[in-house]
Design a protein around this nucleic acid. Structure first.
Lengths: 235, 235
DNA sequence: GAGCTGCGCATTGTATACAACTTTGGCGCA
DNA sequence: TGCGCCAAAGTTGTATACAATGCGCAGCTC
């Protein structure tokens, strides 16, 4: 609580910081699915040893943000259409309940936080920073789970949001705009009103909208992955 | 592709094997909640280095089977009553849907596997090996998720089953018997019949039964944890 | 005698060194 | 010329060494 003038060199978990940095880069679509994540490379970037990098990568692998192939290395995960569908099915199962619970528990302070999130989303979109906008949009859902005060389900939702970011990177159809902030605004309104039924229903339809903005028939082909595709002969 | 007569010394992931061994010990209640899991100690037991042990422990920490406190070490997780309630809430949300899906997709071979599981459960119970019976009972639910062919939700369920084992270790009331194999048998019957509605409903009531066999008002006190309780003054 | 301070041990966090595997380039042979 | 094998480089898997933090006990002060 007192002054902390300079230099808290490594106050907290370094591994977590590396994992967070990588996760953020993935969420903001700075790292495309399929990208190789070499241990030495990352270690040099963050000035940490491979030990730390490996721990961070394993942590990300557990939430399926990266895929680790033994003796091959870590790659940014590349969800298949099947996985993409499963992710949104799971969200459809969990999040409406969470929205309902949030509506019944949200404090005025929580409402402020949510509104602030939306404002930031708008700002990012206006600035043309789609990556940041997408990340904030996801964090909105995570914030909802926090308000719902369901830690266990909240963690599941966190991983689903993270994977959703990858799904969107791969399968988003350009025709549909990222105009979801309106849906978020309506959600906040119903939550502020304590209208549980409406919140649940809005979340359900919001997820349906998101899902219908995906084109899961397309192949998960990114420019960068061409080479990977060519070696998909074996298994 | 040719013969592989003997000795594939370390064919697969060593870390995973250590993690599995520890998880099994926890599931079978051989390791009580709160038990300290020293890195050197485990490393000696399995003849691996601390590097491997640390990776295994972090893996288990991610599914909340163990809790890692920085600079303190790893301990078998000790779910609070709140966490226990959340775990079963989440299961109630996910598993009925899974049971329904399993009923619609199960092949005759799947039915065989499920019946075999139940037989093993019976055998373990008859042998008085409650730990093994409990573990098998959990794996029954995981097998259901596999049959339902929902990998994403299946992974969530796996972690919930794992934590359920800890919850049961802490909060199971002795009065109620472990007579769930009957419920499992009825479930398999409805799944074999392809009766989705019935399967979903049976799973729902099965989870309610399980939940009502817990006494969440009790403190998470185990003999071994006495010392830990005494140092719970701070926080 | 009670409480506090400082040192020493034990354990964890991080870095580095070594071993095993995968890949790739080139050379030889058909 | 094309196929296949071998070797060397690079990357990951594992073990060990060093640094830092926490814990406990002894001894001192009051």
């Amino acid at each position: 609580m007192s002054a902390m003038p300079i230099s808290t060199p490594k106050p907290q978990d370094v591994t977590q910081k590396v994992a967070d940095a990588l996760a953020l880069a993935i969420h903001e679509h700075r790292l495309a699915p399929g990208t190789k994540l070499g241990e030495d490379e990352i270690g040099e970037i963050y000035n940490v040893s491979r030990t730390v990098v490996r721990a961070a990568l394993q942590s990300l692998a557990h939430v399926q943000l990266v895929e680790i192939q033994r003796n091959k290395g870590a790659f940014v995960a590349s969800p298949t259409p099947r996985e993409a569908r499963e992710v949104f099915e799971a969200r459809a199962l969990l999040e409406p309940r969470t929205a309902r619970s949030a509506a019944s528990r949200a404090t005025p302070h929580d409402i402020e936080i949510l509104k602030d999130h939306i404002a930031q989303e708008h700002a990012a979109m206006d600035a043309g920073d789609n990556g940041r906008a997408l990340n904030l949009s996801g964090r909105f859902h995570i914030e909802l789970a926090r308000i719902a005060d369901q830690d266990t389900i909240g963690r599941f939702i966190e991983t689903l949001i993270a994977r959703s970011s990858l799904v969107i990177a791969l399968y988003w159809r350009r025709e549909s705009a990222l105009c979801e902030s309106h849906a978020h605004h309506a959600l906040v309104q119903s939550i502020a009103d304590g209208d549980e039924q409406n919140a649940e229903e809005l979340m359900r339809s919001h997820l349906v909208d998101l899902n219908s903005a995906l084109d899961l028939r397309d192949r998960p082909v990114q420019a960068q992955n061409l080479r990977e595709l060519l070696q998909t002969t074996a298994e």
